[in-house]
């Protein structure tokens, strides 16, 4: 506990504080998301109700790109002065670095979602939300983001040692994150557009839970090999 959870919170706290001071990552993410929303709202007529089938996809496009923007910086910012080595020599578990980075990245993406998704609904005049569908939507977004950020944090650390890490991360993410993205988009579509098929959304959610558990635990356990110098 003392060497896992506590240092993880310290590292996450450091990243959040650093973001609070510089506001670089979340700002870039938000600008990017707004750009996507604005582009789509001009490309398709938002007042036409048939356009709402686009919304599940847009939620996840925003999430994926915002997450990648954050993930790319997550470990490269630790390289300028070999901070990763500082973590290796400190009395902390290697997993706590993964956990800390995961928490920080998750919160960054969450902030973007909290702002961008309501904006999306507003601009596309999406009014068919019920309490029930909001409840499921929040759950699905949580599960999907959790999985994507778990894999992403691990791969970001792995690719940060490479000179072309910004290119490597998406390449590694593509095959590994596809299952959770498909499940998330499918579940979101069902919950937002035909809630009658809820049972199949449930199976997608179960898939996400399994995926999240596997990749989160794998990230925790394998991270010490990523830090090896």
């Amino acid at each position: 506990m003392k060497n896992l959870l506590l240092p993880a919170l310290v590292i996450a706290g450091k990243d959040l504080y650093s973001e609070w001071k510089t506001r670089q990552i979340v700002t870039t993410m938000l600008i990017f998301s707004s750009l996507i929303i604005v582009t789509f709202s001009f490309a398709f007529d938002p007042s036409n109700q048939s356009v709402r089938v686009l919304i599940p996809g847009m939620i996840w496009i925003i999430t994926i790109f915002a997450a990648i923007l954050g993930l790319n910086r997550s470990f490269t910012t630790e390289q300028s002065n070999d901070h990763i080595h500082a973590f290796v020599v400190a009395p902390i578990d290697a997993s706590s670095v993964f956990l800390g980075k995961f928490i920080a990245n998750f919160i960054f993406v969450l902030i973007v979602q909290i702002i961008a998704i309501p904006l999306l609904f507003l601009l596309f005049d999406f009014r068919v939300l019920t309490i029930e569908s909001i409840f499921y939507l929040v759950g699905i977004i949580f599960l999907g983001t959790f999985g994507f950020v778990s894999v992403g944090t691990f791969l970001a650390a792995l690719s940060s040692n490479s000179k072309s890490s910004e290119m490597l991360l998406p390449i590694l993410l593509l095959p590994l994150a596809t299952p959770v993205v498909i499940a998330a988009v499918q579940a979101t579509r069902i919950v937002l557009i035909d809630l009658e098929k809820l049972s199949s959304a449930m199976s997608w959610m179960q898939l996400m839970i399994a995926y999240d558990l596997i990749f989160f635990v794998a990230g925790l356990l394998l991270f010490e090999y990523v830090l090896e110098v």
Binding site: P7, V10, K14, S18, N81, H85, A90
Partner: peptide, 18 residues
């Protein structure tokens, strides 16, 4: 091992916690 955008106090606080 220091963070460039942090002050000495902020840097040392982080390591003190670790």
């Amino acid at each position: 091992f220091l963070y460039e955008h942090f002050s000495p106090v902020e840097n040392l606080r982080f390591f003190a916690k670790l």
